[in-house]
C-alpha cells in the first residue's frame, strides 16, 4: 500500500464547551470529530465539504497535527503521527504544509513577503534560500519585486498567492488548503483555483481542499468527503458525487447552491 499518503483510523477530537462550564470543575466536552476512518491516495485532490460546525476545518488541522486528537491513528506515509509531540513532529513538518483561510492574519504583518516565504525554508535547513524564494514566487505568478512588499500592500488575491508560495516552497508531499478562496472576489477566486489546479498538475501535489462551497471544488478535486456534525456522510469520487449523490445531506447541499441562472427554481 505504498501509494497511500494518509491512513486514518477512528479519529476523534473534542473541545471543551466553555459556554457550559460549571462554576467549579471542568467544562463538558463537545465531540467535533466522531471517529473518522479514511485513506488518502498519493496524488489525490481531496475536497472536504460541510457546513459550519461540521468539523471540516478541525479534520484538516488534525491531519497536519496543528491539534492533537483525543484518540485514533493517523498514519502519514507509514509513520504514526497522532501521538507525536511538537519536537518529534518538527522534522516531519516540511512534508505537510498548510494554506490558510485568511491571508491577512496568516501572514505576519511585520515581515516582508520574501521573509515570509524564506522563514520556513530556513527553519527546515534548506540551502539556496533566495533562489528557492524566487522560484516559489514565480510558480504562483508573482514578480520577484513582490518579495520586498509587506502583506498589507497586496490585494487579497496576491496575499493568497503568497500563502501558496510559502507552502509550496518547501516542496511538501501534502498541502492542506483551508477555505482559501472564501474571502476572495469571484475573479481572484478563479485565479487561485486555476493556479492550484496547475500546481497540482505540475508538482504532483496531494492536496486537501476544505470548503463550504461544493461549486468551487467540482473542477479541482478528484474525491470528496461530505462532513456533517463530525461524521463523514459521503465519501465518493467527484463525478459520482455530483451525478448521483447518495446522502440526503449532500443532495441538500447541492440543491442549495444558487446557480447564476434565473431558470433554476428552488423548491
Amino acid at each position: 500500500m505504498s501509494d497511500l499518503i494518509y491512513r486514518v483510523k477512528d479519529l476523534r477530537v473534542s473541545f471543551p464547551d466553555l459556554s457550559r462550564k460549571p462554576l467549579f470543575g471542568a467544562a463538558p466536552r463537545i465531540d467535533v470529530l466522531k471517529g473518522l476512518s479514511f485513506d488518502v491516495a498519493k496524488g489525490d485532490v481531496l475536497g472536504i465539504v460541510g457546513g459550519s460546525g461540521s468539523g471540516k476545518s478541525t479534520l484538516g488541522r488534525a491531519m497536519i497535527r496543528l491539534l492533537r486528537p483525543d484518540s485514533g491513528s493517523i498514519l502519514f506515509e507509514g509513520t504514526e503521527i497522532a501521538e507525536l509531540n511538537e519536537d518529534e513532529l518538527r522534522p516531519l513538518r516540511k512534508q505537510f504544509q498548510m494554506i490558510f483561510q485568511d491571508p491577512m492574519s496568516s501572514l505576519n504583518p511585520r515581515r516582508r513577503v520574501g521573509g515570509i516565504i524564506a522563514g520556513p525554508l530556513r527553519l527546515q535547513g534548506f540551502d539556496n534560500i533566495p533562489s528557492r524564494v524566487d522560484e516559489a514566487l514565480e510558480m504562483v505568478g508573482l514578480a520577484k519585486r513582490f518579495s520586498e512588499r509587506y502583506p498589507h500592500e497586496l490585494s487579497g488575491g496576491q496575499r493568497q498567492r503568497v500563502g501558496i508560495a510559502r507552502a509550496i516552497a518547501l516542496k511538501p508531499d501534502f498541502i492542506l488548503a483551508d477555505e482559501i478562496v472564501s474571502g476572495l472576489d469571484v475573479s481572484s477566486q478563479a485565479q487561485v483555483l486555476n493556479l492550484l489546479e496547475q500546481l497540482v498538475r505540475e508538482l504532483g501535489l496531494t492536496l486537501a481542499f476544505v470548503s463550504h462551497d461544493l461549486s468551487v471544488i467540482r473542477r479541482l478535486c478528484t474525491r470528496i468527503f461530505v462532513l456533517q456534525k463530525g461524521e463523514i456522510v459521503e465519501n465518493a469520487p467527484t463525478a459520482e458525487l455530483f451525478d448521483n449523490p447518495k446522502s440526503a445531506y449532500t443532495r441538500a447541499l447541492l440543491d442549495a447552491i444558487p446557480l447564476p441562472d434565473p431558470d433554476q427554481v428552488w423548491s
Binding site: 469571484v186 481572484s188 478563479a190 486555476n194 468551487v216 463525478a239 455530483f242 447564476p260 441562472d261
Partner: peptide, 14 residues
Amino acid sequence: ATPKYTDPDGSLMP
C-alpha cells in the same frame, strides 16, 4: 468567473 457546478468542464475564467 462565477462557478457553476452543473457544468463540470467549464473552466473558471478570471
